[in-house]
Amino acid sequence: MVPLPFSLPFAELEVGQHLYWNIGGFQIHGQVFLSSWLVIGALLALVVAGTRKLERDPRGVQNLLEFIWGYLRDLAREQIGEKAYRDWLPFIGTLFLFIFVSNWGGALVPWKLIHLPSGELGAPTADINTTIALALLVSLAYFYAGLSRKGFRYFEYYVEPTPIMLPFKIVEDFTKPLSLSFRLFGNILADELVVAVLAFLVPLVVPLPAMFLGLFTSAIQALIFATLAAYYIGEAVHEEQH
């Protein structure tokens, strides 16, 4: 009988353990920041490489960047509308790119090769702090979008089409960030856990389908988050036809 390969380096499970840094008396999760800096660094490297020499006849990385730009513009324009989407394209696009690269980075980069004293590196979006931060930014964004575009008429949205909707709309303001953050967090963490558990049980081949599924889920989650954020902003800036 072959004993279970417990000695393999990647077959370990750590959930809820963090690398704590203490900055000015506040605790922060160091591993989240380390991996998010890697994500941001990768994004910036791609963007800088692709926009160093922008030409009318695109070449190399510029093609990819223009494709991404067009994709994000279509997403923002479809959800927010022709009039306001330009202001919000960078925000929506950054959300999408950050979440997408985080998710895929968490799935594709062999983080286990880097040993931390505590906790482990992974997708920054698998930490509840990150997803709540993103979701709260979305809440702030749609309040700001509505208030800056319509002023206090924004609050008419709460009593339209009928004042009966008022409590539901107020509850919605709380459920939107909650669902956004937990959906992303849950999906990414669950994906990482599934892959980790499968790799723990059978280290070879068997986790591969789960890994591919994880890549798919990761992309979908980034798209869902960005689309919903754009939809909320679009809802806030939408003008009723009077």
Binding site: G16, H18, F26, Q27, H29, F33, S36, I128, A133
Partner: peptide, 14 residues
């Protein structure tokens, strides 16, 4: 620690 350990990571990440 823990799964739902909210701390200063949140505002810094924002």
């Amino acid at each position: 620690g823990g799964l739902f350990d909210l701390d200063a990571t949140l505002p810094l990440m924002a």
